[in-house]
Amino acid sequence: MKLALLSRLNALRAARRGGVLVTDLASGAQRLLSEDDFSGDALGEEAAAALRSGRSAMVEQDGRKVFLNVQAPPTRLIIVGAVHVAQALAPMAALCGHDVAIVDPRGAFASPERFPDARVLAKWPQDAIAELGGLDRHTAVAAITHDPKIDDPALSAALSAGCFYIGALGSRKTHGKRVERLAAAGFTTEQIGRIKAPIGLDIGSVSPAEIATSVLAQIIEAQRKKPPRPST
């Protein structure tokens, strides 16, 4: 590998960007595809699938063995709302490999005693997100405070950053009002449509832990499942 390519690879990793290092094992020819380079590339579909699954893979191209080495930053989950559901969701998400942070400006909720094993930021979302180094597409955001003053700024930031998962707690009626506020703030219908609301897969969850399960399952789906082909 050329040193210049290795240093590009390390820069990509440091910037929390996903990509795939493509190596022709017979010739040694190598190139680095960042996640923005997939469309239009001969191996773009295979590279996208490998990045989505998080697994490096050997593929064949014109009878040649080509190795796709996945470079995926660790995914993060930012839970906005240090509520009962968050107490179940934080450890479960950590088990699934996410770096978890809990954000809630209400100090009584965001206490380390309630979240012994997670990073807790008793700040407003805007300040907490800045402290966490900003959002990106390898970040999931679950807004579950029920309070628009706290949830809305987090959702706006998540939409702007293209987070891979954005979920918001609240009934359809609550979400309807939220959609109006976000539209008034300048977000398009398509952007707002990315918000999963009511949050979580519809499995009839009742308890906080069950709701956390439905949210985590929805996050896994967003991360791993192949998106449907856009209709033409």
């Binding site: 590998m1 040193l3 290795l6 240093s7 690879l9 390390n10 990793r13 094992l25 490096s56 050997m58 190795f67 080495n69």
Partner: peptide, 21 residues
Amino acid sequence: LSTAQLWREQGKGVALATVVE
């Protein structure tokens, strides 16, 4: 990977081994 880059930049001969299958 950072170490690989650092060692090379220090002028050492460096090889990278990767599990491919």
